[in-house]
Every structure is written in structure tokens, then in C-alpha cells.
Simulated assay, not measured.
Amino acid sequence: MTTNLPMVLSVTSGKGGVGKTNISVNLAYNLSRMGKKVVLLDADLGLANVDVLLGIAPKLNLFHLFHEGSKLQDVIFKTSYGFDILPASSGVGDMVSLSTGQKLDLLEAMDYLEDEVDYLIVDTGAGINDNVLYFNLAVQERLLVLTPEPTSLTDAYALIKVMKLNHGVDRFRVMINMAPDMKSAKEVFSKLYKACDHFLSGVSLDLVGVIPRDQEMRKAVIKQTPVCSMSPGCPACRTLEETAKKITNWKPTSELDGNIKFFWKKLLFQEQSVA
């Protein structure tokens, strides 16, 4: 007997300011437009931005789940764009680093969604702090966002290095954002690929999309609406739509790699039923 397994993916980065949350929002929008049930988890717990990009003000967020006894189903916020969000708090120091107990509590609470969602998108913070690593270990796929800037490249490599050497994670999907042209995008991906190939044996990188520099993205941020809703024909949106279609071909894996995953009980059940 097998069960339907949600696809859980993170959108992550080594450096802030690369458009990671904007990409998360628009992927959630496009997947929901395809009839998928999508929840976007704002996992930048102390510096939440998903609600800001959507121009909404949820009454409850993950702070209330951890500190005030709220239930996950009460924290989930239904947007007008067809997908739900789990909002985080902003400027709350207690959320910057979750305790081991809080991490387990979150995974336990998320079991509520296991039969209610097709895709869980986890918008992580930037960098290599404990929360970023935790969420990247708890997902099935990792979409690493970087721009052609040298600092973005070096920070992306730093995140891959920590995930590979300290946790054995060796597969990453890659998206280049704010590319002035395709040549620049391919060059930055080539540099990242060569660095990983030379210093980190066994790392697999898959370039899934290049988002061109597009003024419509900036306008959409100012208007606090997904660019694919505001300007569906713009170059950036076309790439985001194509990426969302690629994501629908990613197969949820039932392999347990030693790290506690979202919906781990269902993963364990799936593995046992296959065996």
C-alpha cells in the first residue's frame, strides 16, 4: 500500500537580497494556478517577508504556535491568490534560533497538512545559521537562488559546502535571478559548478531556471502582489511559470537520509510499505 506524499522543497540562498522570497511567492502562485494545493511556509522566522510581499497582515503567525499554544490550522492564512501561507514574525528575537523541542513541535504540527497539501514550499532565511540548515535538511528538494554578483556566488558555495560536508546533502537545484543576460547567468553557474566539482566531490547541481532582470518584478514588489498575477506575460514571469512546471515533474522521495523530515511519519510508512 502506498500513500500520496507531498513534495516539500526549500527556496534558499547563501546571501540575502537575491529575490528568494519573491521567487517562493510566485512559484506558489503558479503551482496553485495549475490546480495544486500549496502551502508556503515563511521560514525566515525573525525577519518575515512573505506577508509583506503579499500586502497582507495575518493576525496569527508561527510565534503564536510556539509561544501561545495556537494550533497550526489557526495560523494558516488563506491568500486571495489560491495558496495558503504559514506566516512568521518579524523582529522577534525568540524566533531567530529554534530550540530542538520547537523544531520537533513544528514537524509534529505540520502532520496536520500531510493529506491536505500537494506542495509545501519552505522559504528559508539566508546564510548558514542553524534555522537555515534545519529547514534545508527537513525538505526533499532544495532550490538555491543566486545572482551574478560575486558575493552571492561565494555565499551560495558556502551554503553548499556546509550542507555537503556537515550533513551529507549533495543535490541542489539552482536558479539564477536578476541576470542581465543569459551569458552572465551561465558564467556564474559554471563558476559554482567548477568550485563544487573541484573542492566538494559528488555534489550534483541542476540549473532549473534563469530569471532575467525585469522591472516588472520591482513594480510588483512595490505593489505587494505576485509579478505573475500583475504582469503574467513579462519575461520574469515566463521563467517562473516554466520553473513551476518543472517542479511538477519532481517526484517526492520516500528515502530517509538520517535527517528528520517534514511528514516523516508518512515517509516512514511509505518506506515500510514498499519494503
Score class of each variant (00 low, 15 high):
residue 106 L to R: 03
residue 185 A to M: 12
residue 15 K to W: 08
residue 63 F to P: 00
residue 96 V to G: 05
residue 132 V to P: 00
residue 49 N to F: 02
residue 143 L to H: 08
residue 72 L to H: 02
residue 211 I to L: 04
residue 20 K to R: 04
residue 160 I to S: 02
residue 12 T to I: 03
residue 123 D to K: 11
residue 266 K to I: 04
residue 93 G to S: 06
residue 122 V to Q: 07
residue 26 N to H: 07
residue 83 F to H: 04
residue 231 S to V: 10
residue 203 V to S: 03
residue 45 L to K: 05
residue 177 N to K: 10
residue 169 V to T: 06
residue 246 K to A: 13
residue 206 D to T: 14
residue 242 E to A: 13
residue 272 Q to H: 15
residue 227 V to K: 11
residue 248 T to K: 10
residue 43 A to E: 04
residue 96 V to H: 01
residue 16 G to P: 12
residue 184 S to L: 08
residue 169 V to W: 01
residue 126 A to Q: 09
residue 130 D to H: 03
residue 90 S to H: 11
residue 94 D to P: 06
residue 152 S to L: 01
residue 264 W to K: 10
residue 98 L to Y: 04
residue 28 A to D: 04
residue 189 F to H: 13
residue 255 E to R: 09
residue 113 L to R: 12
residue 180 P to K: 15
residue 211 I to S: 02
residue 164 K to M: 03
residue 233 G to D: 09
residue 199 F to E: 04
residue 70 S to C: 10
residue 34 M to W: 13
residue 3 T to W: 15
residue 160 I to G: 01
residue 113 L to P: 00
residue 14 G to W: 00
residue 175 M to S: 07
residue 264 W to L: 02
residue 261 K to I: 00
residue 37 K to H: 14
residue 64 H to Y: 11
residue 153 L to A: 02
residue 159 L to P: 03
residue 242 E to I: 13
residue 219 K to G: 11
residue 52 V to D: 00
residue 142 R to Y: 02
residue 265 K to Y: 07
residue 201 S to F: 12
residue 121 I to F: 08
residue 234 C to D: 00
residue 11 V to S: 01
residue 124 T to Q: 10
residue 162 V to W: 03
residue 216 E to Q: 14
residue 167 H to N: 14
residue 169 V to M: 03
residue 274 V to P: 02
residue 263 F to V: 00
residue 19 G to N: 07
residue 218 R to Q: 03
residue 100 T to Q: 11
residue 125 G to S: 04
residue 16 G to F: 00
residue 31 L to T: 08
residue 118 D to S: 07
residue 145 V to E: 01
residue 73 Q to P: 14
residue 154 T to W: 14
residue 222 I to W: 03
residue 177 N to E: 09
residue 188 V to K: 08
residue 82 G to W: 06
residue 233 G to R: 15
residue 231 S to I: 09
residue 236 A to W: 02
residue 204 S to I: 15
residue 192 L to C: 08
residue 247 I to M: 09
residue 251 K to M: 08
residue 178 M to D: 01
residue 106 L to D: 00
residue 208 V to T: 15
residue 174 V to W: 04
residue 7 M to L: 15
residue 209 G to P: 09
